[in-house]
């Protein structure tokens, strides 16, 4: 079932289809390896990402969580010398299969980065419209979808009077939500977030976290975070990584109250990392 045939409802970012996989996973990774030149960054990870849930990926610096995230929409291969092998399924389609268009992969699996990165030469409106224009959305449709996306990112009321102003004129937290609006405007299936709050103050962080909770109704969300409280607050399941391997993936409550692996326990209790 395609979303493109439906007209956008003014209140929701996009109506969602039920997940296609019987296990309820929107994305599945099987035996994934990733390299940077000679460095083996991810060593055979397999896991699933439940549809319309928030999956957090945590672990100490260099554990491969961000690399794995970038493998999920094939941004990893943009880094010179980087390559990945294995299977990454969106529903049951391997996004690394031959004949799959990498551009389409990234349209279906959006991304929000660590540092808010609105296009500096574009206005608030144009930033959100950027991805839509690439896909040929025009005129009234465009305006509607920009508004829906800005509402979806909880930013509409704050910026509706200054849509024509430069996007980089907004505050840091607003910029990050603008980037979220830009990402959801093209109606991806999955939104990947790479430490989206690491550069934000606590109040802006709180707003983004509330937004994540609201967004999971429409999107499958994968978030990489350094901040364990944040993982505990926003996620349904949490995966702990160490030295390029998946140590444990379980409901968030279990990870933080009753971890199965001693390494996880040491990390979540702050003994290292």
């Amino acid at each position: 079932m395609s979303n493109d045939t439906l007209t956008p409802a003014p209140t929701a970012a996009a109506p969602r289809a039920a997940p296609a996989m019987p296990d309820g996973h929107s994305m599945t990774v099987r035996d994934l390896h990733a390299h940077y030149g000679d460095t083996h960054a991810i060593k055979g990870v397999s896991m699933g990402y439940a549809a319309n849930q928030v999956t957090a990926m945590i672990g100490p610096s260099g554990c491969g969580k961000s690399t794995l995230l970038r493998c999920l929409n094939r941004m990893h291969e943009e880094i010179p010398g980087a390559r990945a092998e294995g299977t990454v399924l969106l529903d049951e389609t391997d996004i690394y299969a031959r004949g799959i268009d990498v551009v389409a992969v990234r349209r279906a699996i959006g991304m929000v980065f660590q540092r808010a990165n609105p296009f500096p030469t574009m206005s608030v409106f144009d930033n959100v419209a950027a991805g839509l224009r690439l896909n040929g959305v025009k005129g009234v449709d465009l305006h509607e979808r920009v508004e829906v996306s800005l509402r979806g990112a909880g930013l509409w009321d704050e910026v509706k009077d200054r849509l024509g102003r430069p996007g980089i004129g907004l505050s840091g937290g607003q910029q990050q939500r603008l980037c979220i609006a830009r990402a959801i405007a093209v109606r991806p299936r999955v939104v990947l977030m790479d430490e989206p709050c690491s550069a934000l103050d606590p109040i802006a962080t709180l707003k983004v976290e509330e937004l994540i909770a609201a967004l999971k109704r429409d999107f499958t969300i994968v978030i990489v975070t350094h901040n364990m409280q944040q993982a505990a607050r926003v996620s349904d399941t949490t995966a702990f990584f160490y030295l390029g391997e998946l140590v444990e993936h379980a409901p968030t409550d279990a990870i933080f109250s009753n971890p199965g692996d001693p390494r996880t326990e040491e990390y979540v209790t702050g003994k290292f990392g």
Binding site: D4, A20, L89, D91, D101, A104, L134, N135
Partner: peptide
Amino acid sequence: MSAALDALAPVAGRRR
């Protein structure tokens, strides 16, 4: 037709 295949449909020929 699965939703994923739809979502992963190659970009419009004109863009490519």
